[in-house]
């Protein structure tokens, strides 16, 4: 406790009471609501964009948003990781991207200020989903050979398999979902704590003391970091989606 500065315990920062349902399994809190809003918003964008095409084929307003999302997934993620034959993955990766992006962006929405992904629930859920999907994809495209290719990479002298196979097993089947979830979760949690830190500093300096002259410094930093966190939200959504694409792509193509 310095200058009356008290950092709140982390439960106060990331755990939110339910609007209804309390601690029961159906309790809806800020986090769950942000997921619902992300879902409704994304669907609304695409429905609104899709219904406008009957009038005119030239995109305007919301259609531009919808189309740039599709274009971005197509050229920025699928072409780079799976290849043009993976265009049918677009709806899945698109919903992944928008879901992660919008729940991330709640980090900087005034009055809300809580990224949905700063709780382990969504990242873990999505990571396990991606893990399951790339396993199923691998088995569908390569059969049992998928595990053979993944665990015994071709072109390695056989004594090295004692070393390579456990590493490949851990890195492919255990570390992938874990790091996918932890990357998103820890980034958003760290950003959230960073913003809270500067909020607490600014608040602590809002006093009639001589050291109140330092107030602008943390406040300017807070503004800059808010901009930075918006960028991080986009970047993490992009990275989560492109890693999902990389994993799916590596399941669809045999060689490493």
């Amino acid at each position: 406790m310095i200058f009356g500065l008290e950092f709140p315990p982390i439960e106060k920062l990331v755990e939110w009471p339910s609007f209804f349902g309390g601690d029961a399994w159906y309790g809806l809190n800020k986090i769950g609501l942000s997921a619902l809003i992300a879902m409704v918003l994304t669907i609304a964008i695409y429905l609104a964009a899709g219904s406008k095409y009957k009038k005119r084929l030239v995109p305007t307003g919301i259609q531009t948003v919808a189309e740039s999302g599709i274009e971005f997934i197509d050229s920025g993620i699928i072409d780079q990781t799976i290849g043009p034959e993976g265009r049918s993955w677009n709806p899945f990766l698109l919903s992944l991207f928008f879901f992660v992006l919008i729940t991330n962006l709640f980090e900087v929405v005034p009055g809300w200020q809580m990224p949905g992904n700063a709780r382990m629930a969504f990242p873990a859920l999505l990571a396990i989903l991606v893990w399951f999907i790339f396993l199923v994809t691998g088995i569908r495209y390569q059969g049992a050979g998928y595990f053979k290719n993944a665990l015994f990479p071709p072109g390695v002298p056989w004594p090295l398999y004692f070393l390579v196979t456990p590493i490949e097993f851990v890195s492919t089947f255990l570390v992938r979902p874990f790091s996918l979830a932890v990357r998103l979760f820890a980034n958003m949690l760290a950003g959230h704590i960073l913003l809270v830190t500067f909020v607490v500093l600014s608040e602590a300096l809002w006093i009639k003391q001589w050291y109140a002259v330092f107030l602008p410094l943390p406040f300017i930093m807070l503004v800059l970091l808010t901009g930075f966190e918006i960028m991080v939200s986009f970047l993490q959504a992009y990275i989560f989606t492109i890693l999902a694409g990389v994993y799916i792509g590596s399941s669809m193509h045999a060689e490493h």
Binding site: S179, V182, R183, F185, A186, N187, L189, A190, L235, Y238, I239, I242, L243, V246
Partner: peptide, 16 residues
């Protein structure tokens, strides 16, 4: 970006 994502994971595990 992929490389950054993989490298950054180590620091983030430290944060966790």
């Amino acid at each position: 970006f992929l490389g950054i994502a993989f490298t950054e994971a180590l620091a983030l595990i430290g944060f966790v």
